[in-house]
Structures are given as structure tokens and as C-alpha cells.
């Protein structure tokens, strides 16, 4: 299969392939981070997670329209504004949803699943009514277009690099929040033992609401980042949901480190196989592998030992 390529060709194929894998890795990780907080930490199945991502994407789309119409001078940095807005809007919607819906269902996880699925249908139709059924894309600012030439045969697109950098940044932020801030400490306390956390004076309901909001906000940022590498339609969110849940479950639901590890292994496996097989078969084999491993090891790759 590798015959007929020169040594230099092989080198650049591997480099490009590695880059494609890393790109996919950052996409998976961005998708999964928000869910790792909501599902992994809180145990809430949010089937509308994809729609929160799409919300971020639409906010970015609106922002890009606004900047090109009114502030063309600042177009180069509209993206930063859009991402903050995406976080705020998705987070606010998340908090509202938590308050209206999720908090009544904490004891019935399967019912949460159905209710959030209903929410996702409603949101999809809302997007369709507001933005139309066609996919929309944003115009990238000048500096994000094109690619860097590392060598004669290796081209690395800048927007891909930017998404990767963003992924690293957001992951670092999430880790800092979870493990270095007092809020993160409260979240972990509530997750590990709700009753005790309440007894030592943590307002568990408030922690729940903010945790859910932040998880949704991160989904919004992820959606915003995705506009740089693809277009957005009302039902795009649904495409992500299976991958996202599998990444989180495969990593071991409660472990953020596990989420990173599983996003990495799934994305690398998939991009490597895509080189040899057709895209759909690669996807099928990777998902099958993940499901197979989950059947053998239901708790996922990384397990946090907690005494219940």
C-alpha cells in the first residue's frame, strides 16, 4: 500500500496525516469538554449539547455580519468578540434550561435524556425558522486564510492551527477552573458527595446551575470555533452528539484527563484509518472499536476512585 512513494513523499504524507489527526483531535476535544463537565461531572445527559454548539456558531455568524456591516475596521478581531458572546449566550441559555427543566429531573437521568432531546428538537426548529434551512458560513478575517508552507510538500492551514491553539487554551482554562479555583473545588465536592457538600455550606443548587451554564458556554465556544473550519446548518448539532458522548464515556465519564486521552485515541485511530479505507468504513470501525472496548470495560479508560 505504501509502495510507489518516495521517502520524502512518505514523510510529508505522515506529516499531513498527523496534522489531520490533530485537527480532528481538537474538534473532538472541543466538542467533548463541555459535555465532560455536564455529563461527566453532573451526570446529566444533555442531548441538546449539539444545539448549544450550533447556537455558538450562529452567534459567530451574526457577529461576523455585524462587524462587516458596521465595524469593518475591526473585522480582524471580530472573532474574539464572537467567542466571548457565544460563551455568554450559550451559557445563559444553559442556566435558564437548568433552572426551568433539568433541576426537576436530577433523580431521573433517563427522563432528562428525553426532555433534552425535546429541547434539541425545539432549538433546531427555532434555528430553522430564524436562520433558514440552508447552511451558513462566516467569512474568515484576512490573517486566518491561507496556509503556512513548512516545506515543499507540507501545507498547514492557518485556521486549523488557530483551532488547535484555541483548543489548548480552552482546555487549560477548564483545567484551571476545575482544579485551581474555589468554584471548581465546589463542583468536585458536589459531584463526589452532594449531601456532605450541602452540609458544609455549599449551595449545591447554585453550583449545579453554574456548572451546567459553563458546560453549555464551552459548547458555545466550540461551536464558534467550528465556524472557522466548516459551515453551520440547523441540524448540524445532531451529527456531533454520538461522537461527543462516546468520547466522554470512553474516557471515563468523571475524568477530564480521560476525555483528553479518549479524544486523542479516537481521532488518531479515525484519521489513520481514513487514509487506508473509505471515510464511512473508517468511522464504522472506530465507533465499533470504541463500543467494543466499552462493552469489555464499561467504566471507560480512566476511573476516579470515589467511596460512595
Amino acid at each position: 500500500m505504501l509502495m510507489g512513494y518516495s521517502f520524502a513523499d512518505l514523510g510529508s504524507i505522515f506529516a499531513m496525516q498527523a496534522f489531520a489527526g490533530l485537527s480532528l483531535f481538537s474538534v473532538f476535544l472541543l466538542m467533548a469538554l463541555g459535555l465532560a463537565i455536564i455529563f461527566g461531572q453532573m451526570g446529566v445527559i444533555n442531548m441538546a449539547h449539539g444545539e448549544f454548539m450550533i447556537l455558538g456558531a450562529y452567534v459567530t455568524y451574526l457577529c461576523s455580519g455585524f462587524f462587516s456591516a458596521f465595524l469593518p475596521g475591526l473585522y480582524a478581531i471580530y472573532f474574539l468578540v464572537a467567542m466571548v458572546l457565544a460563551f455568554v449566550v450559550a451559557g445563559a441559555l444553559g442556566m435558564a434550561v437548568e433552572w426551568l427543566m433539568i433541576r426537576h429531573l436530577y433523580r431521573r437521568p433517563l427522563d432528562t435524556l428525553l426532555a433534552t432531546w425535546g429541547l434539541s428538537l425545539v432549538l433546531q426548529q427555532a434555528y430553522r425558522s430564524i436562520f433558514g434551512a440552508r447552511e451558513v458560513g462566516v467569512e474568515l478575517p484576512e490573517w486566518m486564510m491561507g496556509s503556512t508552507h513548512l516545506s515543499e510538500t507540507i501545507d498547514i492551514p492557518i485556521n486549523g492551527l488557530f483551532v488547535m491553539a484555541l483548543t489548548v487554551l480552552i482546555t487549560a482554562c477548564v483545567f484551571a477552573m476545575m482544579f485551581r479555583s474555589s468554584w471548581g473545588k465546589k463542583v468536585r465536592a458536589v459531584v463526589q458527595n452532594r449531601t456532605m457538600a450541602g452540609a458544609v455550606g455549599i449551595d449545591t443548587e447554585r453550583v449545579d446551575r453554574y456548572t451546567f451554564g459553563i458546560g453549555c458556554g464551552i459548547a458555545g465556544v466550540a461551536g464558534s470555533a467550528f465556524t472557522m473550519i466548516g459551515s453551520t446548518g440547523p441540524t448540524s448539532g445532531q451529527l456531533y452528539i454520538v461522537d461527543t458522548f462516546l468520547v466522554v464515556v470512553f474516557g471515563g465519564a468523571q475524568s477530564l484527563l480521560g476525555t483528553i486521552a479518549s479524544a486523542f485515541s479516537i481521532s488518531q485511530a479515525q484519521s489513520t484509518m481514513e487514509f487506508f479505507l473509505s471515510g464511512s468504513m473508517a468511522k464504522v470501525l472506530v465507533l465499533l472499536g470504541v463500543v467494543g472496548i466499552l462493552m469489555l470495560r464499561p467504566q471507560g479508560l480512566f476511573v476516579i476512585k470515589v467511596r460512595r
Binding site: 429531573l105 432528562t112 426532555a115 428538537l121 427555532a126
Partner: peptide, 19 residues
């Protein structure tokens, strides 16, 4: 257009109000 709203609302209502 209304159908998907109705369907989504139904999911939510069944779970929240008429389990």
C-alpha cells in the same frame, strides 16, 4: 414548521408534567 416544535414540546411535557 409547527410539527417539530410540537414534537419537542411533547417530549418535554411528557417528562415534566405527565410522566
Amino acid at each position: 414548521q409547527l410539527w417539530q416544535f410540537a414534537m419537542g414540546g411533547l417530549f418535554i411535557a411528557i417528562v415534566m408534567v405527565f410522566p
